[in-house]
Amino acid sequence: MSFDLFEKEVRTIERGKTLLESGTIADEEAAKEYKKLHSSYKKLFKMTKRLVKMSDRNEEKLNKLAQTLEEKSTMLEGLSKKLAKYLSPQIYQSIFSGEKDVSLTTQRKKLTVYFSDIKNFTQTTEDLQPEDLTYLLNSYFTEMSKIALKHGATIDKFIGDAMLMFFGDPDTKGVREDARACVLMAIEMQQRMDDLKKVWFEKGYEHPFEMRVGINTGYCNVGNFGSEERMDYTIIGGEVNLAARLESSAAPGGILMSYETYALVKDLVETESREPIQVKGIRREVKPYAVTGILEGNDRNRRVIRQGYTGFDLFLNMDKLSDEDRKKAKHDLSTALDQLGD
């Protein structure tokens, strides 16, 4: 059954035409006027049809355009998500929200700077195959980045085996809170390193990584450095160098901080003062403090337990344990406890 969108209008025109041709309108003037009206109706009908057609055509074009835009937007979204991985999330956010200009501008801010690296990285890794080194480095950086982002650090860069991060820009909770967040982050990182060392050792890596951390609080220049074509959002200044210098003086698995940071976190962590050091570019004598423990009751939640001696060998990795295996492990440990007796 065919259907014409304008069937009714076509019928009206046909009826008018028939009426005009039948000559039933006796009055000549009325017939003339009727003919004019009939012609105007035909013109109006034509105009309506054309406008509807044009409107449909424009709509179709707009829909196609909207689809193209959506495709482009999806593509850009995907691209920006990929590019975001090359930037610290805070920097990415502040650029994409328009808060920060992508131009060579810097400002002075009081920041808490974190610097870490792996002790004897070259010697530790020279016997490793590239695949093993890649695995170790990626798992190390992945785990450390997770903790850094959890504490709100701005990850500046990875330099080989070293990490440079800072607190206080672009977001800040105040100098004191920034310093405390940084120190708590460093403690959690070292705890995680303990766990990772056990996992790596279990996987066959005889000399697992040992991380040293240096922390300092002071005025730095932060912003975009480089050229208009290629820039880095980073920090520079003597205080940054001091964090690196503290790191190199830290014990393996330890955290060494400057007095400036210590003053802001002394009620939070247990510390021991170390021998003063001289740092190039810093006129004052630097008195370092090593973190030896946490004063607050934030007991860490150990995910890996590794204990072994003659007659006893235990390796427990909570991250790898399925619910079913967890029940099994509980049963096995309970059996072991029964066997051990009182």
């Binding site: 013109k43 105009m47 054309r50 406008l51 044009m54 409107s55 424009n58």
Partner: peptide, 14 residues
């Protein structure tokens, strides 16, 4: 041109 402009064009042609 949009629909309103189309109406103007039709009037012009007339």
């Amino acid at each position: 041109f949009n629909s309103s402009s189309a109406k103007i064009l039709m009037s012009l042609f007339d």
